[in-house]
Design a binder for these strands. Structure first.
Lengths: 343, 343
DNA sequence: TTGTATGCGTTATCAG
DNA sequence: CTGATAACGCATACAA
């Protein structure tokens, strides 16, 4: 029962009175083995509590059954939900998941590259828009890979995300419909493709409404709470005030709300605020945050499905899968206050 | 350079004109090999870009160089910081980390057990107080394991955490010092050992102040935001109101603050609130949350160090390591409002 | 339908 | 100090 050393295929073979080849076949190609022997083998497996030694199997097969998921920050509220989708899909196909977090640290990234090179993972899911490794030459040695959220720079790597432009467009359209014309954009970024796409949606929305963009109320950011707060501080040092803040993500929006709150403003009476992502905290904010919801579990599922396809077929059928984000209307948006309209 | 198949030890041996045994030695016992040959080997390694095949190595050695970290919820704000400590310590000793999250799901837990049994991980870090597996019989087959935060039920597994009793005591003592006497305890739990210990600290603090405990203002909870909110709702249906809420963790405290805010109360004017953990959001709440800080990175570091010790020595030197938690005073606590004092 | 034998890439033992 | 070789546990080509 609870022997010191785990049972091997040989133990099973001995008990079932067959060869190890038959045991292996009974497990992996049950239809190619006689019913009676299959039964014997299964009983022997049950008796011994045999589990395939994954190391030996991978060595023999030349590939592992693990997928490495690399994320810059595991603490990211978006992460865990995506993971659920990734995991479910992977497990359904006999793969396990390995999580690595780089914290945007080169040293750490390198460790994971070594990990890949030692054949410990068959595939790679990348959570960042930038390859965490030494770029160019390395990509040649990368296993089949799929990006999540953003296209991966300098790699011809397929990816799964949401339609950021369309999502951002939904947010602007709502603000426009409420009567806003001076809408700030918080969190612009040249390095985060998803963010710059959201800005494209923002500008498309303004354009459609005949509002000319005002660069004085566009602020850069890195998607952190702190960046949102900072933007508010900078904003109040300028001459132009918006009536609404469209934020590149929820974290930024939370920062903006904190910054505005600290200055004594009421949301949505004085300013409207929108986010993007619909992180779990969004509904607990006061006021609760109007935002764009990402279909996180679905993204994870699709990303893993795509990777598994790559793993078997070799060639990806699609290079980009964009899911539809939905507007979630809560309490952080209202019509602009009259005090501000013509400021 | 970027060949299709990765270089093996044999490739290195051929180029360096030595045997594979020498290559292996040059890598693992450099002092037992002549300087000149070591040089040749290193050059050959550089040329080929050789990396040890971890599968073959683990198979030969009978153990892997990976540690499995199992957590019920990766989204837990405490998790990622602990992980940093775990990772650093592991890497420093040549181990990698594998993260599994069970979501308290039996099926998932079983998958991880299989994973362990297939020799894919040399050790186990458990983030929950309850063994996620089928209890009794299974523990016999568990690899060296260490618990984090809480002692692990039904296993003689050593663990690393904070001194919950002392931490909770610091929170009560602060409230008592501010003049509170009617202090509610939110988040009592029979299943979470850490939580029941915090309650012990709470009661010890009351006792030291000569305050007799009032069970009408002790509420159960599971440490979620929702549970905090719920407790507030239940509380207002009873006849006794506290002047302060001591919460079992920050998430609960956030829930309490939301519940109190929804009823129009001001914190800390009307009620004081304390948390436990000092999660990243705590400082961003309004008011910012007075809480007990856990030395998360240190906990991770110690836990991994203990596990590595187990891995080599076989026997643990300590069965329990308790770190000291610190009080972080912010703005959610003040003296009780006169309106309530004699209610 | 089943068994035998080989090799996956390493490390360790044992001779030299 | 170095080399030949066995063994780790498994999957499969080939034989029976």
């Amino acid at each position: 029962m609870s022997n010191s050393t785990p049972a091997t295929i040989e133990d099973v073979a001995r008990i079932a009175q067959v060869s190890i080849a038959t045991v292996s076949r009974a497990i992996h190609m049950p239809e190619k083995v006689a019913n009676s022997t299959r039964l014997k083998v299964n009983q022997a497996i049950a008796i011994t509590g045999y589990t395939t030694n994954a190391m030996a199997r991978s060595l023999r097969l030349g590939r592992s059954n693990m997928i490495l998921v690399v994320a810059p920050d595991i603490g990211d509220p978006n992460f865990s939900n995506i993971l659920v989708g990734l995991e479910n899909e992977a497990r359904a196909h006999g793969y396990g998941i390995l999580i690595g977090h780089t914290q945007n640290d080169a040293q750490r990234s390198l460790e994971y590259l070594k990990f890949l090179n030692s054949n410990q993972a068959a595939g790679l899911i990348l959570f960042t828009g930038i390859l965490p490794f030494g770029h160019q030459t390395m990509t040649a040695r990368l296993p089949p890979s799929v990006g999540v959220f953003e296209p991966v720079f300098n790699g011809g790597i397929p990816y799964v995300g949401v339609d950021d432009i369309a999502g951002a467009r939904k947010a602007v359209d709502l603000l426009i419909a409420e009567g806003h014309r001076k809408i700030a954009f918080i969190g612009d970024s040249r390095t985060r493709l998803a963010y710059s796409r959201r800005r494209m949606g923002y500008e498309a929305g303004l354009d459609a409404a005949g509002v000319s963009p005002d660069l004085r109320i566009v602020f850069e950011g890195d998607g952190t709470i702190e960046s949102g707060r900072l933007a508010v501080e900078q904003l109040f040092m300028r001459d132009t005030l918006p009536t609404a803040f469209m934020c590149v993500n929820d974290q930024t929006a939370i920062g903006v709300m904190i910054g505005l709150g600290a200055r004594g403003y009421d949301i949505p009476r004085d300013f409207s605020v929108t986010g993007f992502d619909d992180v779990p905290q969004a509904v607990f904010m006061s006021p609760s945050l109007t935002t764009i919801r990402q279909p996180r579990t679905a993204i994870g599922k699709h990303a893993m499905a795509l990777l598994l396809e790559l793993l078997s077929d070799g060639q990806p059928t699609e290079t980009e899968i964009l899911l539809r984000p939905d507007l979630v209307v809560r309490n952080s948006v209202s019509a602009p206050s009259r005090n501000w309209i013509r400021k």
